[in-house]
Design a binder for these strands. Sequence first.
DNA 1: AGTCGATTAAAACACTCGTTTCATAGACGC
DNA 2: GCGTCTATGAAACGAGTGTTTTAATCGACT
Lengths: 245, 245
Amino acid sequence: MSRPRATSDRLLTAATDLFARRGFHGTSIREIAERAGANVAAGHYHYGSKKGLYLQVLRHQFARVRATLDRDGPLAASRVLRTLPRRELVALLVRRIEAMVTILLAPPLQPHGALMLREMCDPTDAMPIIVREFIRPQSSEMAAIVACLVPGAGRTVVERSVRSIVGQVLFYRFTMPAVLLMLGRPTYSRHFTRQIATHIVEFSLGGLTRVGRPGTVTRRPRPYVGRTRERSRRAPARRRRARAR
Amino acid sequence: MSRPRATSDRLLTAATDLFARRGFHGTSIREIAERAGANVAAGHYHYGSKKGLYLQVLRHQFARVRATLDRDGPLAASRVLRTLPRRELVALLVRRIEAMVTILLAPPLQPHGALMLREMCDPTDAMPIIVREFIRPQSSEMAAIVACLVPGAGRTVVERSVRSIVGQVLFYRFTMPAVLLMLGRPTYSRHFTRQIATHIVEFSLGGLTRVGRPGTVTRRPRPYVGRTRERSRRAPARRRRARAR
DNA sequence: AGTCGATTAAAACACTCGTTTCATAGACGC
DNA sequence: GCGTCTATGAAACGAGTGTTTTAATCGACT
């Protein structure tokens, strides 16, 4: 039959999808139970509370993500990295970026992106899990590569550069509705995500090259050069709400 | 005196803060009314419904943001831009990035960042407002500068580069809880945001330099290096729609 | 003064929510 | 058979929700 799985499993599956799509507040125990073909009391029986179920969903999702990352791109130790030629280091960075784009953007969209986004809106006890299982591993593995690619850079420069790279990727996930609206697409296609990955790789390699060089344009007293103009484009939007009916 | 303002204004102020901090679902009309020193019915009287109040909050916030942007960094027309020397173009880009960092990250944190983030989780009718008043203007003004800085780049390359720049900035806002947790800070300090802005400028200038050059490392048959994985993660998500009532 | 429209206030309505209670069913060992 | 433990189902609880209703209040203006 189609659903021989345990009730607790079906609850977890249903909850994962609903929490990702509608959020914690926007999802009801009854909705989860109905979709899982279970009783309203089942959630509390198996997970103690709605919050307990939510935490379990996040633990489970990010454990999976972590497992994927570990399998996909196990990083060579730092001291091994340092012996690699630049070409190999670049190849490693490319793989990391492509893996991240794939896991976050490529269809079919996985739930953890939405779950992570929601945690950024309303952090819960699950935030440390996300940092530990997803953000920290991604960052430190990328940092190891970046540190070798930019030998002169200190720890802060490396960390900021990693955030610049990760930020480019996450942008497409975290502003997805706006980007899709502007591009006139319904979803990100695989073709699109491949192009994105390639662009981010190029842009980032350029960025890394520059932050590795001493003495740049922004080392100056005041960055402001241009004149200010006072033109105001439109009157402040004044709007009145008429109540319906 | 402390409360000479109109009830509708006080409602809007209270609602802005609460919607930004707790979200639409997490905020109740009663809570808004209490903070505004008004009756529960006041919200419906002035704004028709909770959703009407929410929309008005977003309209108001992003009209303000737009006004700030227009005052701060009115962009020279494209044909004027094209006559500027590179040094001036860079200065303009620096100003845009610094303005964006300031408006999004520098303390005291403004509500629109949180409101925008929440819209990315649960898009509503306010999404077009955000795109029109904030994202689109920022993007197109930056695109005009980038297009001049990277003369050889086509429209798509320019747009992707703009997203790479904006993405770096938005990253710090949209993953703020995680970044603060990793950095062990309570908030972003002004000093920190200034450093961030400088880094993003440098990283981006390097990125732009590279994407403007033809022939790069990623121009190769297949960008994928790792093996493809075939493991199916879950049974096809069966979907059941229960009608309400 | 009196009328009228715009606001405000209090109460009730019709839900939905997470949670709990309690009865029942099945499995297992003895 | 019995007793025990795990799991499920149906129903109810109490609190909280957005909204509506109804009445009272205020400030002009004739």
